[in-house]
């Protein structure tokens, strides 16, 4: 078991009266893509800042790449790349000058520097426009450049705060592919935040869902989907007659039943299980093609989880 790239324990950060990060305990394995999901203002950006030592925790421990944040923040930054909330590009410098500055900052030797910048700019088809001031570029072009900048020095770990925001679907897909390739080839670890759940599902082997600074779900996207499904049963098939629905609704172990888009959706009562319900539906003469006990997508799961947490919090 390799040591985790990121480990936090009871990580908490307060701003005046707001608790932006609240007792976050998290592990991100080396060589994986970790997706950090959560509604606006849930503490994702703050967490990245804490992990890079750009904010001091109010309490709790952080270990990144084997370094304790209190003593090893410079070493952590030296081995990481980061795309923060803003692209962080110098708009009055050209794309080339931007990458060159950061390549120097990361001490990439001159010959290698030029080859690396060329390779990266060519990969996004912007090599020909390297001399233009970044300020004149479109938002998506800047975003691509900013992502490349984080990879320039071949870091072991990259933090990406909403990396595909502003990218067109093709560019976003290309970026995802690049990241997955780097993870496979170079053992890169990626910690990313996103609001695009389809993206998290495709890219991440682990996701964490935060709300108001608290981790409310954590695991593989599939696990989260299953967990978030709660008591919902989805049955595809034919023959869902009104009398079948009435029969279901009158059962003790069913809280509700409706047909949506030809699918039978059954809300189990507390303690209710799948097999008796399925047996009942079959017994009532319906043909079943598929039974699922999971949210359709991570997006549904996300909405369920966050909604539940919202209700629990009152």
């Amino acid at each position: 078991m390799p040591s985790p790239a990121i480990r936090t324990d009871g990580l908490t950060r307060d701003f005046a009266s707001i608790r932006a990060v609240d007792g976050l305990t998290l592990e991100v394995a080396e060589g994986t893509v970790f997706g950090f999901l959560g509604p606006n203002g849930s503490g994702k950006t703050t967490t990245i800042r804490l992990l890079l030592g750009l904010l001091a925790p109010t309490s709790g421990d952080i270990e990144v790449l084997g370094h304790d944040i209190r003593t090893g923040a410079p070493a952590i930054r030296a081995a990481s790349g980061a795309l923060m909330e803003h692209s962080g590009l110098y708009e009055r410098l050209s794309a080339w000058e931007n990458l060159e500055f950061f390549a120097r900052v990361w001490r990439i030797p001159k010959g290698e520097r030029e080859a690396r910048i060329k390779e990266l700019l060519e990969s996004i088809g912007l090599w020909d426009r390297r001399g233009e001031l970044v300020g004149t570029w479109s938002r998506g072009m800047k975003q691509k450049l900013a992502v490349l900048r984080t990879l320039l020095h071949r870091p072991r770990l990259v933090f990406l705060d909403e990396p595909t925001a502003g990218l067109d679907p093709i560019a976003a897909a290309a970026l995802r592919e690049d990241l997955l390739r780097l993870v496979a080839e170079e053992g890169l670890t990626v910690f990313l935040t996103t609001h695009n759940l389809a993206e998290a599902e495709r890219l991440c082997s682990q996701v964490g869902v935060v709300r108001r600074g608290r981790l409310i779900a954590h695991g593989h996207p599939d696990e989260i989907r299953v967990a978030a499904a709660g008591n919902r049963l989805e049955i595809a098939g034919r023959g869902f007659t009104p009398s079948l629905l009435d029969g279901l609704r009158s059962r003790q172990d069913v809280a509700g039943a409706v047909v949506v888009n030809g699918r039978l959706c059954v809300e189990l009562a507390t303690g209710g299980t799948t097999p008796p319900v399925v047996a009942f539906v079959v017994g009532a003469g319906a043909d079943i093609e598929e039974v699922r006990r999971a949210a359709d997508s991570l997006e549904d799961a996300f909405l369920n989880i966050v909604g539940e947490a919202e209700r629990d919090a009152g």
Binding site: L54, R77, L83, E85, G88, E91, W106
Partner: peptide, 14 residues
């Protein structure tokens, strides 16, 4: 003002 400070601070520069 131009939102580059944070990225500079996140770099390896001391």
């Amino acid at each position: 003002e131009r939102h580059t400070l944070e990225t500079l601070l996140a770099s390896r520069l001391s």
